[in-house]
Protein backbone atom coordinates (compact mmCIF):
# COMPACT_ATOMS: atom_id res chain seq x y z
CA UNK A 1 0.00 0.00 0.00
CA UNK A 2 2.85 2.36 -0.70
CA UNK A 3 0.78 4.49 -3.07
CA UNK A 4 -1.63 5.41 -0.27
CA UNK A 5 -2.27 9.16 -0.27
CA UNK A 6 -2.06 9.33 3.48
CA UNK A 7 1.07 9.05 5.55
CA UNK A 8 -0.91 8.35 8.68
CA UNK A 9 -4.51 7.71 9.57
CA UNK A 10 -5.62 7.97 13.19
CA UNK A 11 -9.05 6.55 13.94
CA UNK A 12 -10.98 7.08 17.15
CA UNK A 13 -7.90 7.31 19.34
CA UNK A 14 -8.60 7.28 23.05
CA UNK A 15 -5.84 7.76 25.59
CA UNK A 16 -6.58 7.98 29.27
CA UNK A 17 -4.70 8.46 32.49
CA UNK A 18 -5.72 6.57 35.57
CA UNK A 19 -5.08 8.62 38.67
CA UNK A 20 -6.37 7.67 42.12
CA UNK A 21 -9.11 5.51 40.67
CA UNK A 22 -10.30 8.23 38.30
CA UNK A 23 -10.07 8.01 34.56
CA UNK A 24 -8.88 11.21 32.91
CA UNK A 25 -9.65 11.15 29.22
CA UNK A 26 -6.77 13.17 27.80
CA UNK A 27 -7.50 12.19 24.22
CA UNK A 28 -11.11 11.32 23.66
CA UNK A 29 -11.90 9.90 20.24
CA UNK A 30 -9.53 11.69 17.91
CA UNK A 31 -9.60 10.83 14.19
CA UNK A 32 -7.15 12.53 11.89
CA UNK A 33 -5.41 11.83 8.61
CA UNK A 34 -2.03 13.19 7.64
CA UNK A 35 -1.76 13.47 3.83
CA UNK A 36 1.60 12.57 2.32
CA UNK A 37 4.05 15.43 2.01
CA UNK A 38 1.77 17.84 3.87
CA UNK A 39 1.95 19.59 7.20
CA UNK A 40 -0.94 19.16 9.57
CA UNK A 41 -1.07 21.43 12.59
CA UNK A 42 -2.68 20.48 15.86
CA UNK A 43 -3.54 23.61 17.85
CA UNK A 44 -4.97 23.93 21.29
CA UNK A 45 -4.31 25.33 24.72
CA UNK A 46 -2.68 23.52 27.64
CA UNK A 47 -4.54 20.38 28.52
CA UNK A 48 -6.33 20.06 25.19
CA UNK A 49 -4.63 16.72 24.52
CA UNK A 50 -2.49 17.78 21.58
CA UNK A 51 0.79 16.53 23.02
CA UNK A 52 -0.78 13.28 24.26
CA UNK A 53 -2.05 12.68 20.72
CA UNK A 54 1.48 12.96 19.37
CA UNK A 55 2.95 10.79 22.11
CA UNK A 56 0.25 8.20 21.36
CA UNK A 57 1.33 8.09 17.70
CA UNK A 58 4.86 7.33 18.86
CA UNK A 59 3.50 4.89 21.46
CA UNK A 60 5.37 6.78 24.14
CA UNK A 61 2.53 6.85 26.67
CA UNK A 62 3.81 5.69 30.03
CA UNK A 63 1.86 4.40 33.02
CA UNK A 64 -0.52 5.62 34.47
CA UNK A 65 -1.43 6.56 30.92
CA UNK A 66 -2.87 4.04 28.53
CA UNK A 67 -4.02 3.98 24.92
CA UNK A 68 -7.43 2.46 25.34
CA UNK A 69 -8.91 2.37 21.91
CA UNK A 70 -8.41 3.24 18.28
CA UNK A 71 -6.02 2.55 15.45
CA UNK A 72 -3.12 4.42 13.92
CA UNK A 73 -2.56 3.21 10.38
CA UNK A 74 0.75 3.77 8.65
CA UNK A 75 1.53 2.04 5.36
CA UNK A 76 -1.43 -0.24 5.90
CA UNK A 77 -0.31 -1.41 9.31
CA UNK A 78 -1.71 -0.51 12.70
CA UNK A 79 0.96 0.99 14.95
CA UNK A 80 -1.09 0.18 18.02
CA UNK A 81 -0.79 -3.55 17.26
CA UNK A 82 3.02 -3.49 17.06
CA UNK A 83 5.22 -5.00 19.73
CA UNK A 84 7.58 -2.73 21.62
CA UNK A 85 10.47 -4.27 19.64
CA UNK A 86 8.84 -3.47 16.31
CA UNK A 87 7.97 0.01 17.52
CA UNK A 88 11.58 0.70 18.34
CA UNK A 89 12.45 0.06 14.70
CA UNK A 90 9.71 2.39 13.50
CA UNK A 91 10.70 5.24 15.80
CA UNK A 92 13.51 7.19 14.26
CA UNK A 93 13.27 5.24 11.01
CA UNK A 94 9.74 5.94 9.83
CA UNK A 95 8.47 8.40 12.43
CA UNK A 96 10.66 10.89 14.25
CA UNK A 97 9.87 13.44 16.85
CA UNK A 98 11.32 16.72 18.00
CA UNK A 99 10.41 18.29 21.29
CA UNK A 100 10.09 21.75 22.72
CA UNK A 101 13.14 21.91 24.94
CA UNK A 102 16.18 20.49 23.15
CA UNK A 103 18.33 20.63 26.27
CA UNK A 104 16.21 18.00 28.01
CA UNK A 105 16.05 15.78 24.93
CA UNK A 106 19.79 15.80 24.26
CA UNK A 107 22.13 13.82 26.44
CA UNK A 108 24.44 16.30 28.20
CA UNK A 109 27.37 13.88 28.60
CA UNK A 110 27.79 12.90 24.94
CA UNK A 111 29.00 15.10 22.12
CA UNK A 112 26.40 15.98 19.53
CA UNK A 113 28.43 14.01 16.98
CA UNK A 114 28.10 10.87 19.06
CA UNK A 115 24.38 11.42 19.47
CA UNK A 116 23.71 11.87 15.76
CA UNK A 117 26.03 9.03 14.87
CA UNK A 118 24.21 6.73 17.28
CA UNK A 119 21.07 6.99 15.15
CA UNK A 120 22.95 5.67 12.13
CA UNK A 121 24.61 2.92 14.13
CA UNK A 122 21.37 1.70 15.66
CA UNK A 123 19.04 2.03 12.68
CA UNK A 124 21.32 1.49 9.71
CA UNK A 125 24.10 -0.64 11.19
CA UNK A 126 26.86 1.77 10.22
CA UNK A 127 30.22 1.73 11.97
CA UNK A 128 31.22 4.45 14.39
CA UNK A 129 33.47 6.05 11.81
CA UNK A 130 30.83 6.03 9.08
CA UNK A 131 28.32 7.36 11.57
CA UNK A 132 30.62 10.23 12.44
CA UNK A 133 31.00 11.16 8.79
CA UNK A 134 27.23 11.06 8.36
CA UNK A 135 26.84 13.24 11.45
CA UNK A 136 28.95 15.95 9.83
CA UNK A 137 26.75 15.73 6.72
CA UNK A 138 23.61 16.07 8.82
CA UNK A 139 24.95 19.11 10.68
CA UNK A 140 25.69 20.69 7.35
CA UNK A 141 22.18 19.91 6.15
CA UNK A 142 20.60 21.67 9.13
CA UNK A 143 22.78 24.72 8.59
CA UNK A 144 25.25 24.55 11.44
CA UNK A 145 28.41 26.46 10.55
CA UNK A 146 31.79 24.64 10.64
CA UNK A 147 30.19 21.22 11.25
CA UNK A 148 33.54 19.41 11.50
CA UNK A 149 34.40 21.28 14.68
CA UNK A 150 30.85 21.32 16.01
CA UNK A 151 30.46 17.52 16.07
CA UNK A 152 32.94 17.41 18.91
CA UNK A 153 30.97 19.83 21.06
CA UNK A 154 28.60 19.06 23.91
CA UNK A 155 25.01 20.32 24.03
CA UNK A 156 25.77 22.96 26.68
CA UNK A 157 28.25 24.60 24.34
CA UNK A 158 25.50 25.36 21.84
CA UNK A 159 22.82 28.06 21.85
CA UNK A 160 19.13 27.17 22.00
CA UNK A 161 18.65 27.55 18.26
CA UNK A 162 21.71 25.43 17.50
CA UNK A 163 20.49 22.71 19.86
CA UNK A 164 17.16 22.61 18.11
CA UNK A 165 19.02 22.25 14.81
CA UNK A 166 20.88 19.28 16.29
CA UNK A 167 17.55 17.75 17.38
CA UNK A 168 16.27 18.17 13.84
CA UNK A 169 19.45 16.54 12.51
CA UNK A 170 18.89 13.54 14.79
CA UNK A 171 15.21 13.33 13.87
CA UNK A 172 15.88 13.47 10.15
CA UNK A 173 18.95 11.23 10.16
CA UNK A 174 17.09 8.25 8.73
CA UNK A 175 14.83 10.25 6.40
CA UNK A 176 11.58 9.44 8.20
CA UNK A 177 8.26 9.51 6.35
CA UNK A 178 6.66 11.39 9.19
CA UNK A 179 8.06 14.02 11.52
CA UNK A 180 6.19 14.97 14.66
CA UNK A 181 7.26 18.37 15.93
CA UNK A 182 5.89 19.16 19.39
CA UNK A 183 6.17 22.92 19.98
CA UNK A 184 9.56 22.94 18.21
CA UNK A 185 10.06 26.70 18.39
CA UNK A 186 8.18 27.66 21.54
CA UNK A 187 11.33 28.02 23.65
CA UNK A 188 13.14 30.07 21.02
CA UNK A 189 13.32 33.79 20.35
CA UNK A 190 11.38 35.01 17.31
CA UNK A 191 14.41 35.66 15.11
CA UNK A 192 15.69 32.15 15.87
CA UNK A 193 12.19 30.73 15.46
CA UNK A 194 12.09 32.22 11.97
CA UNK A 195 15.36 30.45 11.15
CA UNK A 196 14.14 27.08 12.43
CA UNK A 197 10.74 27.30 10.70
CA UNK A 198 12.43 28.13 7.43
CA UNK A 199 14.84 25.23 7.88
CA UNK A 200 12.00 22.81 8.58
CA UNK A 201 10.09 24.01 5.54
CA UNK A 202 13.08 23.60 3.23
CA UNK A 203 13.94 20.17 4.59
CA UNK A 204 10.36 19.02 4.22
CA UNK A 205 10.36 19.99 0.56
CA UNK A 206 13.74 18.39 0.01
CA UNK A 207 12.92 15.13 1.76
CA UNK A 208 9.21 14.99 0.89
CA UNK A 209 8.13 14.00 4.37
CA UNK A 210 4.86 14.63 6.17
CA UNK A 211 4.83 16.74 9.29
CA UNK A 212 2.56 16.90 12.30
CA UNK A 213 3.15 20.25 13.96
CA UNK A 214 1.86 20.68 17.47
CA UNK A 215 1.67 24.26 18.65
CA UNK A 216 -0.34 26.84 20.51
CA UNK A 217 0.86 29.65 18.23
CA UNK A 218 -1.67 30.51 15.54
CA UNK A 219 0.93 32.58 13.71
CA UNK A 220 3.20 29.57 13.29
CA UNK A 221 0.22 27.53 12.08
CA UNK A 222 -0.81 30.09 9.48
CA UNK A 223 2.67 30.16 8.14
CA UNK A 224 3.62 26.51 8.01
CA UNK A 225 0.58 24.26 7.90
CA UNK A 226 -1.58 22.96 5.05
CA UNK A 227 -4.33 21.60 7.29
CA UNK A 228 -5.21 22.36 10.87
CA UNK A 229 -6.99 20.47 13.62
CA UNK A 230 -8.14 22.56 16.58
CA UNK A 231 -8.37 20.59 19.79
CA UNK A 232 -10.33 21.41 22.91
CA UNK A 233 -10.62 19.22 26.02
CA UNK A 234 -9.44 16.03 24.34
CA UNK A 235 -11.47 16.36 21.16
CA UNK A 236 -11.01 17.84 17.73
CA UNK A 237 -13.53 20.67 17.45
CA UNK A 238 -12.61 21.88 13.98
CA UNK A 239 -10.60 20.56 11.05
CA UNK A 240 -9.98 22.62 7.94
CA UNK A 241 -7.41 23.65 5.40
CA UNK A 242 -5.39 26.55 6.69
CA UNK A 243 -7.05 29.18 4.47
CA UNK A 244 -10.57 28.24 5.46
CA UNK A 245 -9.65 28.05 9.11
CA UNK A 246 -8.30 31.57 9.21
CA UNK A 247 -10.68 33.21 6.76
CA UNK A 248 -13.89 31.51 7.80
CA UNK A 249 -13.53 29.80 11.17
CA UNK A 250 -16.69 27.97 12.18
CA UNK A 251 -16.42 26.71 15.72
CA UNK A 252 -17.07 29.33 18.43
CA UNK A 253 -13.88 28.20 20.18
CA UNK A 254 -11.76 28.77 17.08
CA UNK A 255 -13.38 32.15 16.57
CA UNK A 256 -12.83 33.06 20.21
CA UNK A 257 -9.22 31.98 20.03
CA UNK A 258 -8.57 34.17 17.01
CA UNK A 259 -10.35 37.18 18.42
CA UNK A 260 -8.48 36.97 21.70
CA UNK A 261 -5.10 36.97 19.99
CA UNK A 262 -3.24 40.28 20.28
CA UNK A 263 -1.81 41.13 16.87
CA UNK A 264 1.42 42.95 16.18
CA UNK A 265 0.32 43.93 12.68
CA UNK A 266 -2.87 45.79 13.55
CA UNK A 267 -4.53 47.69 16.37
CA UNK A 268 -7.37 46.29 18.41
CA UNK A 269 -9.43 48.24 20.89
CA UNK A 270 -10.25 45.39 23.22
CA UNK A 271 -9.63 41.67 22.98
CA UNK A 272 -12.73 39.53 22.68
CA UNK A 273 -11.80 37.13 25.40
CA UNK A 274 -13.26 33.69 25.95
CA UNK A 275 -14.78 33.77 29.40
CA UNK A 276 -13.89 31.21 32.07
CA UNK A 277 -11.34 28.44 32.06
CA UNK A 278 -10.72 25.11 30.34
CA UNK A 279 -12.82 22.51 32.17
CA UNK A 280 -10.95 20.34 34.65
CA UNK A 281 -10.64 16.74 33.45
CA UNK A 282 -12.75 15.47 36.33
CA UNK A 283 -15.47 18.05 35.75
CA UNK A 284 -16.12 17.53 32.04
CA UNK A 285 -19.41 19.02 30.87
CA UNK A 286 -21.96 16.42 29.80
CA UNK A 287 -22.77 18.05 26.48
CA UNK A 288 -20.44 20.03 24.27
CA UNK A 289 -17.18 20.48 26.12
CA UNK A 290 -17.10 24.14 25.19
CA UNK A 291 -20.72 24.90 26.12
CA UNK A 292 -20.00 26.52 29.53
CA UNK A 293 -17.72 29.08 27.83
CA UNK A 294 -19.62 29.42 24.57
CA UNK A 295 -21.62 32.63 24.03
CA UNK A 296 -24.00 30.78 21.67
CA UNK A 297 -24.69 27.75 23.88
CA UNK A 298 -28.32 26.67 23.86
CA UNK A 299 -30.32 23.82 25.35
CA UNK A 300 -28.94 21.05 23.17
CA UNK A 301 -25.31 22.13 23.66
CA UNK A 302 -25.55 21.68 27.39
CA UNK A 303 -27.13 18.25 27.19
CA UNK A 304 -25.73 16.50 24.15
CA UNK A 305 -22.25 16.13 22.77
CA UNK A 306 -22.16 17.09 19.08
CA UNK A 307 -20.45 14.92 16.44
CA UNK A 308 -17.76 16.12 14.13
CA UNK A 309 -19.97 17.30 11.27
CA UNK A 310 -18.69 17.39 7.71
CA UNK A 311 -19.40 20.76 6.11
CA UNK A 312 -19.96 21.60 2.44
CA UNK A 313 -16.33 22.58 1.89
CA UNK A 314 -15.04 19.17 3.07
CA UNK A 315 -13.99 20.55 6.42
CA UNK A 316 -15.23 19.42 9.79
CA UNK A 317 -16.70 21.13 12.80
CA UNK A 318 -18.00 19.78 16.11
CA UNK A 319 -20.82 22.20 16.83
CA UNK A 320 -24.61 21.96 16.96
CA UNK A 321 -25.01 25.24 15.10
CA UNK A 322 -24.10 23.47 11.87
CA UNK A 323 -26.45 20.51 12.35
CA UNK A 324 -30.16 20.02 11.60
CA UNK A 325 -30.84 19.65 15.30
CA UNK A 326 -29.75 23.22 16.17
CA UNK A 327 -32.36 24.73 18.47
CA UNK A 328 -30.98 28.24 18.80
CA UNK A 329 -31.17 31.22 16.48
CA UNK A 330 -31.13 29.77 12.93
CA UNK A 331 -29.59 32.92 11.50
CA UNK A 332 -26.52 32.89 13.71
CA UNK A 333 -23.14 33.56 12.13
CA UNK A 334 -20.44 32.60 14.59
CA UNK A 335 -17.61 34.76 13.27
CA UNK A 336 -19.69 37.93 12.82
CA UNK A 337 -21.87 37.59 15.89
CA UNK A 338 -19.21 36.48 18.34
CA UNK A 339 -18.55 39.90 19.76
CA UNK A 340 -22.17 40.82 20.41
CA UNK A 341 -23.06 37.38 21.74
CA UNK A 342 -20.10 37.50 24.07
CA UNK A 343 -20.93 40.81 25.64
CA UNK A 344 -24.43 39.67 26.62
Amino acid sequence: MSNDANALKISDLRTSFFVEGNEIKAVDGVSLTIPKGKTVGIVGESGSGKSITSLSIMRLIKSPGQIKHGSIAMNGEDLLQKSEREMRKIRGNQISMIFQEPMTSLNPVYTIGEQISEVFQVHQGLSKKEGRAKAVEMLELVGIPSPKERVKQYPHELSGGMRQRVMIAIALACSPELLIADEPTTALDVTIQAQILELMKNLQQELGMSVVLITHDLGVVAETCDYVAVMYAGKIVEYADVYTLFNAPKHPYTVGLMQSLPRHDKDQEELNVIKGNVPKPDEMPAGCRFAPRCPFASEICINELPDLIETEDNNKVRCWIYSDKWDGNPEVNVADDYKTARSK
Partner: peptide, 10 residues
Protein backbone atom coordinates in the same frame (compact mmCIF):
# COMPACT_ATOMS: atom_id res chain seq x y z
CA UNK B 1 8.92 42.53 13.36
CA UNK B 2 9.28 40.57 10.16
CA UNK B 3 10.24 37.43 12.08
CA UNK B 4 6.90 37.17 13.88
CA UNK B 5 4.57 34.72 12.19
CA UNK B 6 1.32 36.46 11.22
CA UNK B 7 -1.88 34.52 11.90
CA UNK B 8 -3.08 35.07 8.35
CA UNK B 9 -2.16 32.48 5.71
CA UNK B 10 -2.95 34.86 2.83
Amino acid sequence: LSAIPVPDPD
